[in-house]
Design a protein around this nucleic acid. Structure first.
Lengths: 142, 142
DNA sequence: ACCTTTTAAATGCATGATGATACAATTAAA
DNA sequence: TTTAATTGTATCATCATGCATTTAAAAGGT
């Protein structure tokens, strides 16, 4: 009895993981192909765009995107260098240890276009049935 | 209106991703700490244990675990070398291109012990409310 | 039988992630 | 002030992963 229940937990978990990976891979390759962005790079732009002044310190980004401190540092450096002009790093004047990563106008435009791709994929993946309500109630319980 | 719905998709997606990452990280570090196994390594042992003759070709493992062909090849080689004796690779005699990865008795024991750790974590993460039923209905719809 | 094509796994290489460490700036204490 | 501890980033070494290529075996067409 105990074992059956445990098997169910694990197998449900594996199913969730599969679904997650599937959608993640779709997002990855569509963003890469259409906008030359990785998924995490997209997340960076998205989280920046949601703030009032379009900028965040590295540590805040780190928590939101879910990367290590060193990984987010390098991701932002790479992204600034690569996608010429979608974001700018600049020293935070009131605490000169800090670095602001700021979304440029160009970056906002790029984000808006990329959002279309993301929404398309998520919609077709998540719009079935009454999935939204179920998801939300699920998320609240977790 | 359209934008609101789209935001909901994306934000729900981000919530799911967060939850997934959280549990994944818990599993990773508990397995690493208690059993010196990575999560993917654990999955390999688990999928092997579910087969009737405790062995699988690399390609089958690849699909189950969700790694590329090269990655699963190396993962299995590493795991065989490292966790002395939990699994054995051997040439498949009826098709000498193939490699069987076989779970040893020692490996089954190790898996059983590791399963306790995994179940513990999943239980505390997934056992709340009537989450199981909700999850299953969700999974079926996706 | 012989040659081509396909298939399974291994390998070289580039990339991106992490943890440990280094460095610079800030804060707190003496 | 000077000094010690903390905090925010950057850098380094290491490692796992994916793609492209290679090797070996099997299958198929002539």
């Amino acid at each position: 009895m105990k074992n059956n229940q445990e098997k169910k937990y694990l197998d449900n978990w594996l199913s969730i993981t599969n679904i997650q990976m599937g959608i993640t891979n779709e997002l990855e390759s569509a963003l890469q192909k259409n906008h030359n962005l990785s998924l995490k790079e997209f997340y960076v732009l998205y989280f920046l765009s949601k703030t009032s002044d379009k900028q965040l310190r590295l540590q805040q980004l780190q928590d939101m995107v879910g990367l290590s401190q060193s990984a987010i540092s390098r991701l932002v450096v790479r992204l600034e260098a690569k996608s010429c002009g979608v974001l700018q790093r600049q020293i935070c004047e009131d605490d000169r240890r800090g670095i602001y990563t700021r979304l440029t106008t160009l970056g906002e435009e790029k984000l808006q276009i990329s959002l279309n791709t993301v929404h398309e994929i998520l919609q077709s993946a998540l719009s079935k049935g009454n999935l939204q309500e179920e998801l939300q109630s699920l998320i609240q319980k977790l």
